[in-house]
Amino acid sequence: MTAKGWKDLVLIGVLVLAAAFVPLVTDGYWLSIAVTAMMYIALTTAWTLFSGPTHYISLATGAFFGVGGYLVATGMSDHDLPFWLMAAIAPVVSVVLAALIGAATLRLSGIYFVIFTLGLAEMIRGLVSWVQNNFLGSRGLYVLTDFTEAHIYWMLLAIAATVYVIGWLIDRSRLGFAMKIIGNDEGVAKHLGIDTARAKVLLFMVTGFFSTLVGAIVAPRYSYIEPNQVFSPELSFMVVIMALLGGTQKLWGPIIGVIPFILIWETITASFPNATTLYLGLCFLAIVYFLPNGVVGLVQKIIAKGRSA
């Protein structure tokens, strides 16, 4: 187990190094797709950190991401604060938000959590638009920095790698052990004296932190920011699909889902822009009926079959 754990870490290190060279060999269209893919890799890995072991489907990504993008924009545009200060404050705000959401919903059954996060991005968007229109004056927010696409790509890669390492460390900690028991049987975990709510809330806070950081880092890419655009419920669903498509038992599983999904998504957006929602729907159905454990699960099943045959 320990040896295999180290092997996983080395493998990821090699992948990160290889990925770091992407902006040096490509630019323009393909680099922009690489940035999008890296953004989703960071988001899905952060999502899997919480939703993988707990099996709770979190739809809060859009809300966290929006908090990141919006706070950076309003801080820089309305108060002339530096980018890095806002990029540091935003995740902290989200950690508090995640703690509150977690405290309200994670003590109860998973269904309440899903429902609560379902409308969360939409709700915060409504609140933010209202505050902006009535108290701050409605004007566009600008995020102007010197970052190039390559810079954003490297920062996202660094976040994804950090999330992975943190996940790897959690997996080897008492918290990770507790999560495994909770994921298998929450009743057993409670009887063992594990504070299940506390463990879940903690993990959810970590996810919130990194999803927001991604939102903050990506903000300079849009330069002009509106609440309607950053608080996107669609983003939450895309993250869920990509993570489940890859498989959530392993922290690196989602990466396998992100790349094919993004390539197909870009093709569809380019040629049939009206069919994207239908595509999302069909992907969900395909996952439930044909790939209940994602691509990683399917491959594992095939290998297991090959061995037993």
Partner: peptide, 22 residues
């Protein structure tokens, strides 16, 4: 069942939105 039905009905819901928009 809860997780599966949530995902499946999300799928149905997106597919329906796609159809209705078209």
């Amino acid at each position: 069942l809860e997780v599966d039905s949530i995902l499946a009905t999300f799928g149905i819901s997106f597919a329906l939105v796609g159809l209705m928009v078209s």
